[in-house]
Amino acid sequence: MSTTKADAQEPTVSIAGSLADAMARSFTLGTDTDGYSHHYYRPADAVVVYDGRELDHYQPLAGRSLEEWRAFVELKRGWASMGPLSALGLRMNAERIESDR
């Protein structure tokens, strides 16, 4: 008879839970037609725009929706591509803003 104790199992972390946690912090919105990449940074409620590795612009949203920024860029420059999680991120942002009202 063995007297050793079984190791405690580490908590299971779901991929969906990890993804939601990561997106709650930041995600790539997309790349505009001028080649600038737009990233949403949730802790600051801001969009950070990069030209390659160089910071080009920092735009606090100040309670406005991320969809407003997406539409603004669409109008001014257009989008070359959207980030792989942008649709989900836009929806999460809209739901958060709606719940804050």
Rank of each mutant, 00 (worst) to 15 (best):
A46K: 10
A22Q: 12
P43A: 06
R64P: 00
T28N: 04
T28L: 09
S2C: 03
T4Y: 08
V47P: 00
P84D: 12
G52F: 10
T31R: 08
H38W: 05
E68I: 04
A46S: 13
R70G: 00
I97K: 12
V73L: 10
L61I: 08
A87R: 13
Y41E: 01
R70S: 05
P43F: 04
R64G: 06
A71W: 04
M82G: 01
Y36H: 14
A94L: 14
L55M: 14
A80F: 02
G63F: 10
I97W: 01
G63N: 14
L85E: 03
N93A: 07
G30C: 14
R96L: 12
V73G: 00
T12M: 07
A62Y: 08
S2D: 15
L61E: 07
W79L: 09
A20I: 08
R77E: 11
E95H: 07
G35I: 00
L85D: 01
I15T: 11
R91T: 03
A46H: 03
V13F: 11
E54Y: 07
R77I: 13
A80I: 00
T31C: 08
Y50V: 04
L90Q: 02
T31Y: 03
E95A: 15
L75E: 15
A24M: 04
V48G: 05
A62H: 14
G78C: 03
S65Q: 10
D7A: 14
I97N: 07
A44V: 01
L55I: 13
T3I: 08
L75I: 03
A62G: 10
F72I: 05
E67P: 01
D51V: 01
R91N: 09
W69F: 14
V49F: 10
G89V: 00
G83E: 02
A16I: 10
R96V: 02
A6K: 14
Q59T: 13
R53I: 08
T31M: 07
I15E: 14
Y50G: 05
A87D: 15
W69G: 00
D7Y: 06
Y40V: 03
A46M: 08
L75G: 06
D100S: 14
Q59Y: 06
F27A: 02
G30H: 11
A22M: 09
P11A: 11
G89M: 03
A80H: 09
S99E: 12
T33C: 10
L61Q: 01
A16T: 08
S65A: 12
L88Y: 02
